[in-house]
Amino acid sequence: MEMDERYIVPGLVRGLKALQAFSDERRELSVSELADAIEVNRSSAFRIIYTLESCGFLYKAEGARRYRLNSKVLDLGFTYLSGLDLLEPSRPIIQRLRDEVTIACHLVIRQGTEIVFVDRYQATGPFTSTVGVGTRWPAHATVTGQLLLSDLSDEAIVELYRDYQWATYTEGTPHSTASLLACIAEVRGRPALISWGYFNPVMAACSAPIYRLSDNSMIASISVSCPLSSFPRAEFEGRIQDKVIQAGHDLSRTLSLNNAYP
């Protein structure tokens, strides 16, 4: 989508970039570190931090000249999530799947070239998933992302990835539009996709589609993930995959019956 730069507010853009500079790896930032992260001078970074702190989105870490995200940031995410009609009806199904397979279960949507985890049920076993609500991963590099991309036409994928900066994570990661299209052609129409170290070399994942039954369009994905050592590969590709596929079918029907996605 082409944007008319005359209507863009530069200060707001810098403020949003400042919020996005915080992550699990960078939970605290100094003024200088933020300035480097968003490529502004220290004076501009201080004004941005001062404004965000005044509005309640940042707070100063106790006893240090460093800043952290404040809980008010969560309000933005919760407002967005509450508007997703698929959350409430999906939860009993995702919880049941988690109880059956005992590993972490996720509800995932696609936004542009990224997948976004919008709900999660933690594993009941010893493994604790670090993937939280709001986590974003590159769609091209994950089986869940490729599953969701497979609902698009080749022409739409080419347009979506025009001028995209490709990053690779393992040997199997598509590194160009052509290689992504080849990958999508192989997976399109499958009832589920399995990753056995595909995105993260030590993790297994399985993802199945959730459809709007009226037009058979894919609206989300239900997935599970765990360390490779959690199950024999045959069991993961058999029993676990079957459970995930069934959960995807059940949720598709439930959303249709609830008129959430008629």
Rank of each mutant, 00 (worst) to 15 (best):
G77H: 07
E33F: 08
L97P: 04
Y198K: 10
K60N: 01
R253V: 12
A167M: 13
V31W: 00
D99W: 04
V116P: 02
L181S: 05
S207Q: 04
N200W: 03
A220H: 04
G145R: 01
Y161K: 00
Y121H: 12
Q165C: 03
L181T: 04
H140L: 06
A208D: 09
L12E: 13
S129E: 03
A182I: 01
Y67E: 00
S150M: 03
A247K: 10
I103P: 00
D36V: 03
R239L: 10
L181C: 07
G112C: 03
P201G: 11
L180Q: 00
A156N: 05
R120Y: 03
K60M: 03
L160N: 02
E53F: 01
A220Y: 05
Y169K: 09
T102C: 07
S252F: 06
S225W: 05
L160T: 01
L52S: 01
G189W: 07
L86V: 12
I222D: 06
I245A: 02
A61G: 02
V118W: 01
S71I: 12
I240S: 02
D85Q: 13
E100H: 09
F231S: 06
E155M: 07
G197D: 02
L213F: 05
A61P: 00
P232K: 13
H249A: 08
L228F: 08
V133P: 04
G56E: 07
R136F: 07
L147I: 10
N200R: 09
Y261F: 15
M3T: 13
S221A: 15
V108S: 03
E171W: 00
I103Y: 00
F199H: 15
S176W: 05
S179W: 02
K72G: 00
L228Y: 03
D215S: 13
G238Y: 07
E235H: 14
I49L: 10
P232S: 11
A178Y: 02
E235L: 14
L34Q: 05
G15K: 14
R42E: 06
H249I: 14
A234T: 13
V224H: 04
D24F: 11
E155S: 15
S195L: 03
I210V: 15
G132D: 12
L84W: 00
V31C: 00
V108K: 05
L149Q: 05
